[in-house]
């Protein structure tokens, strides 16, 4: 079959609108960002001499600090959320019974409120003379140091914001573990630890890995937590990109930083996907 004939097969013909939409709406902006990363610093035209100067500038600068912060905070967020979410997911699937829906709803509700509003809410709680410290002061005369604008609160904010993105895939993973398999293991004399290590965890892994990936990719792109709760004590890479596109008006540098971030995150995700073949563990092949 010729290429033309293949393109005009009914399936392809019907897929054409969505294909055009994806190319225009998804691929084109991405390609524009990649192209911009090669044009001279602080210029606005794609039709100029392309070079790797922006990348050289990044490698000669202290931008690695912001990369380390973003990747480190994202990894820490994922690790903390894994520890928090697995027991909650287990509870939602096997323990809470009819209350599970209500508890799920409570975890979902914050998603309906803008992230910035929620983060400013935390500031009101933790700021000096705010809801928490003000109450402690007026009730007990105790004035502990405030924890706003610290690294710790930035991490707490990220854990709080990204919790649902880890919890729901993990819950899906835990619910995929057949109760009969667990019962059989217990009947054969397995301890709780053995069941957890050899049945629960491996069989729930597809959901957990999806949670890891989703949370990590979102958390690497986080900016509001470090800005609002952390008082910019931490500068993540996304903040560097924002400065390049706004105050510095250095679109090519911002584009090069974005491309590098995509490469780093893409590579990390590919490594994880090579280790865990999602299709295989989901039973598709």
């Amino acid at each position: 079959m010729s290429v033309l004939a293949q393109i005009f097969r009914p399936g392809m013909r019907h897929a054409l609108p969505i294909l055009v939409f994806l190319l225009g709406g998804f691929a084109a902006p991405l390609l524009a960002v990649i192209a911009f990363s090669f044009v001279p610093s602080r210029t606005f035209s794609l039709w100029s001499d392309w070079s790797f100067d922006n990348y050289v500038e990044i490698f000669n600068s202290s931008s690695y600090i912001t990369f380390v912060w973003s990747l480190g905070l994202a990894a820490a967020t994922v690790a903390i959320l894994a520890v928090i979410c697995y027991p909650v997911a287990f509870g939602l699937t096997r323990v809470f019974g009819r209350y599970a829906t209500l508890i799920t709803l409570l975890f979902t509700l914050p998603l309906f409120v803008s992230e910035n509003v929620r983060l400013y809410g935390w500031i009101l709680i933790f700021i000096k003379n705010g809801v928490l410290l003000g109450t402690l002061k007026s009730l007990f005369g105790w004035e502990p140091e405030s924890i706003v604008f610290t690294h710790g609160l930035t991490l707490m904010g990220m854990v709080y914001v990204y919790l649902p993105f880890m919890l729901f895939p993990t819950t899906l993973g835990v619910s995929m573990v057949p109760q009969q398999t667990r019962d059989a293991a217990f009947d054969l004399g397995a301890s709780r630890w053995q069941v957890f290590r050899e049945i629960d965890l491996p069989l729930a892994m597809p959901g957990i890995v999806i949670g890891f990936l989703l949370t990590f990719v979102l958390a690497v792109g986080a900016i509001a937590e470090a800005k609002v709760l952390g008082g910019q004590q931490i500068i993540p890479i996304t903040h560097d990109i924002e400065i390049a596109f706004t105050y510095a008006q250095n679109w090519p540098l911002g584009a090069a930083l974005s491309v590098l971030l995509m490469l780093v995150v893409g590579t990390l995700v590919l490594i994880v996907l090579r280790r865990f073949d999602l299709d295989a563990i989901l039973g598709r092949r």
Binding site: S61, S62, I65, T66, W69, Q233, I235, I243
Partner: peptide, 10 residues
């Protein structure tokens, strides 16, 4: 200034 801010954060 951006570099200074970044380095202080490091």
């Amino acid at each position: 200034m951006t570099a200074a801010k970044r380095e202080v954060s490091g």
